[in-house]
Design a protein around this nucleic acid. Sequence first.
DNA 1: AAAGATTGTGACCACCCGGTCACTATCTTT
DNA 2: AAAGATAGTGACCGGGTGGTCACAATCTTT
Lengths: 205, 205
Amino acid sequence: MPKNTFLELDEAKKEKITEAALNEFAAYGYEISSTNRIVKECGISKGSLFQYFENKEDLYFYLIDTVAKEMAEDMKPDIGKLPKNIKERIIEYSLREISWYMENPVKGRFMIGMASERGDIYKKTIERYGEKSSGIYEELIKDAKFNGKAGTNEMSDALQWVLKGYNEKFLKENDPDKTPLRKLEKKYVTGLSTYLDIILQTGDS
Amino acid sequence: MPKNTFLELDEAKKEKITEAALNEFAAYGYEISSTNRIVKECGISKGSLFQYFENKEDLYFYLIDTVAKEMAEDMKPDIGKLPKNIKERIIEYSLREISWYMENPVKGRFMIGMASERGDIYKKTIERYGEKSSGIYEELIKDAKFNGKAGTNEMSDALQWVLKGYNEKFLKENDPDKTPLRKLEKKYVTGLSTYLDIILQTGDS
DNA sequence: AAAGATTGTGACCACCCGGTCACTATCTTT
DNA sequence: AAAGATAGTGACCGGGTGGTCACAATCTTT
């Protein structure tokens, strides 16, 4: 965790440092990211950075804490009022998620990158935060009918894999800076609907 | 590509160098991997390594070439005689793939890691080899019936995501060094069958 | 205004990197 | 055996790394 000195900085400065660090980690990943570039980017001295944070790892975990918390808080209010229909429920939840990524591209890339780190830092991240919970997917499909021998576990796995695959594909093929968000959201829903038909037994739209 | 000097080395030495380099890249990824550690591991001098290969990148691409070729050749003979039934066909192909990964764990981790590199080396890899072809998945499902509006493209995407997800899950949960391969293969097929039921309309076993 | 506490700085440290090259050791040809 | 070609070596180079610390600047208390 950051030292008190950092938390007591004025918002603008904190923001600048956080932004620079997120950009660096999002672009290069943990190991290749350079604290030298970070301090140059946000205009503070090396000494200051290491006064605010114990070390590079401390800074990295602070960012994970902050961004994960912010994301969770942005999404939480919507989760309560999801539709009853399974397919609609999944689409609305997933749309909320992808919109957050498009509205927060740097933080989004940071979070995605975090999940594909390697070596020590990956192990430590897992130790601190555990594997990504699949609880939310089980929640989403709680009263669906399934094909074959599939149970809730298999179904939520499949849903998770398809959503992840579709999100990656969508983010790769669509640039939120070029197309208005509204249009992208419509496109996202249309595309996702087709994929959901594949794994959901229910025939209604 | 490696210089002639490397290709003319005796097999044992080539093998030792290749093995050490694969281990390093598989464990750390391209950027963090160290040529110093590689030469120490395989017992040659730094000078020799750079006599055999132009530079680190050259070595890396040589490994990709070699391993990808080997994998393709190991799999090719089987592809021709896949069953006609879609589900059986997918299972048999996918089983062959996962078996190869379990029989060649280092090469397997190297190939998987390769696909999740970042930055320049990732771009260069794509430039050289192109995106991973999804042609094989289209081939596998060529005469399936689909749910809803899904066409061949969506279907092969979904199949690809589910297979990838299941493979990762399976490799994480099963250690080929502890359980005999036969048993693992049986377990793999049983598990995969359930997931395939989710995305395949066909009701037959 | 002076003294003291706090915050900010960047030159500097030891270390590691990929890559080089003058040199040695080995093998081949004469 | 001598001479020449080839293969192998590791100290060394410039450069970048995360992290430190003596000092400078600023703010707070007296």
